[in-house]
Amino acid sequence: MKKLIVGIVIVMMIFGMTACSDGGGEEGGGTEGTPVTYDFTASELAGYISENVTFNDFMEEVDPQTVYELYGIDGSKVSDSCTYFSTGATAEEISVMCVDPENADSMLGEINRAFNKRIEDQIESFTDYVPAELDKLSKPLIMEIGNSVVMVVCDDPDQAKSAILEYINQ
């Protein structure tokens, strides 16, 4: 009986660790036609971005369910996610959403659309509120990495892209 329980726990741990770890991508240096495997969790990547990209505001993690509702994403089809918002003083934002390979075809597009819609909504909110933030919102970084989509709104999206590539290639 003990062996059975240990076996179940090990299998669960193996499945639990696969979030964001599988998938093909163009940014990993893999040979053509060979899916590149990235090994990161959403919180690891989002945390790395928050620490290695310049933000003017406090960047703080938000409950995923709140984010799914706000972005209009079916959270049940997201395998792993991590999102940081600012205090409201700026439009700065980080979001990493990962899906299982079997959901990738439909969900990556849905997440991309949701991120773009979020940018549109933020532009509408900030136009009369803090117009200076529109510059950041005019150049959001939205990129797919394997079975994940990453969005970063900051002053320097090139810096954000470099940080992401540095992280996934390390």
Binding site: D57, F58, E60, T87, G88, A89, T90
Partner: peptide
């Protein structure tokens, strides 16, 4: 508590 003097952090 604040970055801009108006909004508060977590």
């Amino acid at each position: 508590a604040t970055s801009d003097g108006v909004h508060i952090n977590s």
